[in-house]
Design a protein around this nucleic acid. Sequence first.
DNA 1: GAAGGAAGCGCC
DNA 2: AAAGGGCGCTTCCTTC
Length: 551
Amino acid sequence: MNRVVLVRRGASVEARECGDDGRVVGTARLPAEELAGFVRAREPGRVRWVWDDTTRWYPGLLDAGVRVERCTDLRLTHAVLRRSPFVDQSLLTDDETPGWDALQPVSATEAALFPLDDPADRLDPVGEHRRQRVALAAAEERSRLDLLLAAESSGALAAAEMTHAGLPWRADVHERLLTELLGPRPTAGRRPAVLEGLLAEIRRALRVPELNPDSPGELLRALHAAGLPVPDTRSWTLERLDHPGIPALLEYKRLSRLLQANGWNWLDTWVRDGRFRPWFLPGGVVTGRWASSGGGALSVPVQVRPAAVADQGWRFVVADVAQLEPRVLAGMSGDTAMAEAARSADLYEGMVAAGAVAGRADAKVGMLGAMYGGTRGESGRMMPRLARRYPRAIGLVEEAARAGERGELVHTLLGRGSPPPAGEWAARPVDLGEPADEELPREVRDRHRRSWGRFTRNFVVQGTGAEWALCWLADLRNRLWRLGSGTVAERPHLVFFLHDEVVVHTPGHLAAEVADEVRHAAAAAGRLLFGSFPVDFPLDVSVVRSWAEAG
DNA sequence: GAAGGAAGCGCC
DNA sequence: AAAGGGCGCTTCCTTC
């Protein structure tokens, strides 16, 4: 594989050819405006482009109509290697390391505002690349780390392409939906008519003429005065109350939430030219999940999904994995009994069929408890049964929890390490007797320990689930490219990704092939992570005009 | 008036 | 006896 490190030098770019060990074997220098043509010309020769950070290079290439198949995003791979327990840190670190640790992605607006003072320009990508290659060559579990770094970098390409293409969004459909639910758009600072009506009803029922239900403090006092001794004003707390004002209050909360989070202001801010373009942030969560920025992309409510409509003659292919995390747990722990349950399209039904639990609800609440650390009530009662039937799977998460409680680090299947615990509790070994003065009381320390144990318990499963999803996404991205011709947005392409769900925008006549490729990519991801271990990842796949029709 | 925390709620 | 993971966003409310 040819590796070419791209380096910014003022108005020009250096392209430095490297061997697998990161040593430079050749250099070309070109004016920045010739970069897109250079990359386009070299791309067919199976190049891995190496750059400091995908958000600083790839949006410009995409705007110029250039797509690349593979890259190394040094910012992201640095972050993984720095925390991986498979890596000898002394091979990786250098005077520049704090600069790489601190490097942040940019959005296009920032890049336009501050083109001249970028901390990335004070870092040397060639040196960092060489250090990473040396550290990787000496790492334990080299092939797992290789896979993780490749998948992480591919994710960065997919993220940039999704923002570039945008999720098709019909503002007219969205506006009609808002008007039906809330009434016509009010002038700035006024409530929509439907909310005003509900407000009057709430004030009447609670006998507080000036009540502002958007203020939790005010609302709580009003509820108490009405003889409703609630501890908070959350919807699920209020649902259990029997009082004439409550239905209107719950409806007010539901509609008010829609208005605030995804109302007309959201449309004005985030939808342009028929596209919703959030920023996806690969590696933005410590577990390896993506974060997002702008428009709340990771929590687009079901309520407004009817407005996501494929272009004329195009379709969405929407796919999600059923019970990703329990399946991943079965695979990473090598628990054949749980993998057997996972053979079923519904893993929880598979557990019922095996006689492990009485009903689907028990299976679900038990597994969620095992993965999140819920031990109270129903899910706690299920744990002994599950531990007997699935000793390896349950043992793996229990061990991760105990390690976290001891202040130790855990890691995912491919080698992403958990962050070190912070805080005073972590500075002390477990059994030092009673604390001295000015130290945390024992019960406070223990609470922190258990809380961190729940985090590390979940880290190994959530993080390995994120690795499966990244491999799925990376493989799918390349399969989609091969289905069409032209630029990214002219072929079937990804427009949305959320933990265990993808949305592909595709010309209608290719939709069936896209659905096949989505399934093939999922099977390939399973083999990449778990080899021949027999754990299935069945998908729900829908071909639809609107996102809301999926599922 | 800016900044930051808490409450609350949406997604997985 | 108590013990449920990860996010982003908007509003309210306190602090400086």
